Simulated assay, not measured.
Amino acid sequence: MTSTRTRPSGRPDVPGRPSVGARLAFLRSPGWLGAIAGALAFAAVCFWVLAPWQFHRHVERDVRNSEIAVAARAEPVPLDQRLTSTDGIDPGESWQQVTATGQFLADRQVVVRLRQDENTGNPASEILAPLQLADGSILLVDRGYVPIDQLTGGVAAPAAPSGELTVTGRLQPFQPDPLKRAPVRVGERLEVYGIAADSIADLPGPVLGGFIQLVDGSPGVLTPIGVPQMDPGPYFSYAWQWLAFGTMSILAIGFFVFREFTDPRDPDPQDLDPQDPQARQPPRTAARAAAESVGVPVPEPGSESPPAPGRSKRTRPRRGFDRGSLYDPS
């Protein structure tokens, strides 16, 4: 009685079965090396670049929302407590409500082009007017939105109120035009593309390093510009998606390596050397080796009986890619 040796795993040790090293030889091929390197590189980018980037954006949005919420609830304070120089404002001071007292220079106000009314979503313009304070310095004041159809035909922008008055607005850093486009004269008004210290030329005093957006109820306000929406945004979920993509790439390449290791493809006859006697031998599969070990005769290639007349010979489809199906024009 013939007995088969059993490996610790419980599976029979089939004679002629390739060693583990031989079955892993495919990992040395350029195709597999490239696939593994690509999967690991993609996972590394997901884990250490893309996911941290989205987490950082989520934290930035969270801090910004907190600052806006605190500023919106705070009571207005005098301008000189938040802005006193031309150097600019601290980013943490944005959206703080301040009050300023002075006189509008009504003949020097300009129209800011290419804006959008956040309430309606329609194109709009903003009216920017200089306010001269008691010490002679200039504070730029954004009076709010004006619909595009109210500025057709080159009409002048809505006039600013005259006399000394106290306005209330939210403090903002300058919003300069990144393309540095020159102002455009349209009829009776001057139009600019950004809000900066040089948006209005030849002012009679130094321009403070920030501007204010008038709130509802303030003298001179048009359609007020509200605070932005304070939603957390999609950045947190995007970060987890990148982590999932990186994990999936590692699992996918691991699955393909496991399949190739446990179920290798038979060699393609077209890849074998016809002059090599070993190449003409049938592949020694595990099933063939097991059959030979228990004395079951295995027919040699070409020894099968020919098919009966009128019946086609049934062949077992070859596993893997069949190069014979490719079109050969020669």
Rank of each mutant, 00 (worst) to 15 (best):
residue 302 G to W: 13
residue 323 R to Y: 07
residue 308 A to N: 07
residue 292 E to S: 06
residue 326 L to K: 11
residue 201 A to L: 06
residue 303 S to W: 03
residue 112 V to C: 03
residue 13 D to H: 07
residue 273 D to Q: 07
residue 247 T to M: 12
residue 274 P to E: 08
residue 153 G to P: 02
residue 221 V to Q: 06
residue 306 P to C: 02
residue 74 A to Q: 14
residue 229 Q to N: 11
residue 117 D to P: 01
residue 240 W to T: 05
residue 206 P to D: 14
residue 217 G to H: 09
residue 235 Y to K: 01
residue 199 S to L: 00
residue 238 Y to G: 04
residue 19 S to W: 02
residue 280 R to Y: 06
residue 5 R to W: 01
residue 237 S to N: 11
residue 95 W to T: 07
residue 21 G to N: 07
residue 290 A to Q: 07
residue 37 A to W: 08
residue 34 G to D: 07
residue 203 L to P: 02
residue 182 A to C: 02
residue 261 F to Y: 15
residue 55 F to A: 13
residue 246 G to H: 01
residue 259 R to D: 13
residue 284 R to Q: 14
residue 101 T to M: 00
residue 320 G to F: 12
residue 95 W to N: 08
residue 138 I to C: 04
residue 68 I to M: 07
residue 232 P to T: 06
residue 329 P to D: 12
residue 105 L to V: 07
residue 273 D to A: 01
residue 198 D to M: 06
residue 270 Q to N: 10
residue 1 M to S: 14
residue 184 V to D: 05
residue 303 S to N: 11
residue 26 F to D: 14
residue 97 Q to I: 14
residue 238 Y to V: 03
residue 229 Q to M: 08
residue 319 R to D: 15
residue 197 A to N: 11
residue 83 L to E: 04
residue 128 L to H: 05
residue 170 R to N: 08
residue 161 P to A: 04
residue 285 T to S: 14
residue 168 T to E: 14
residue 229 Q to K: 09
residue 241 Q to G: 04
residue 260 E to V: 03
residue 255 F to G: 12
residue 93 E to D: 15
residue 255 F to H: 13
residue 298 V to I: 14
residue 268 D to T: 03
residue 270 Q to Y: 08
residue 86 T to Y: 00
residue 188 E to I: 01
residue 185 R to N: 09
residue 99 T to Q: 10
residue 124 A to D: 03
residue 126 E to F: 01
residue 172 Q to V: 08
residue 12 P to L: 11
residue 53 W to Y: 12
residue 111 V to Q: 10
residue 145 Y to W: 15
residue 259 R to C: 11
residue 183 P to K: 07
residue 250 I to H: 06
residue 222 L to T: 05
residue 296 V to D: 00
residue 306 P to S: 10
residue 327 Y to D: 13
residue 38 G to V: 10
residue 133 L to Q: 08
residue 117 D to Q: 01
residue 228 P to I: 11
residue 272 L to Y: 00
residue 250 I to G: 05
residue 71 A to E: 13
residue 322 D to Y: 02
residue 257 V to L: 15
residue 205 G to N: 07
residue 310 G to A: 06
residue 237 S to Y: 09
residue 220 G to H: 03
residue 304 E to P: 02
residue 272 L to S: 12
residue 122 N to L: 13
residue 26 F to W: 10
residue 28 R to F: 03
residue 104 F to W: 04
residue 92 G to L: 09
residue 142 D to E: 11
residue 69 A to K: 12
residue 183 P to R: 06
residue 192 V to G: 03
residue 171 L to C: 07
residue 147 P to V: 05
residue 194 G to V: 04
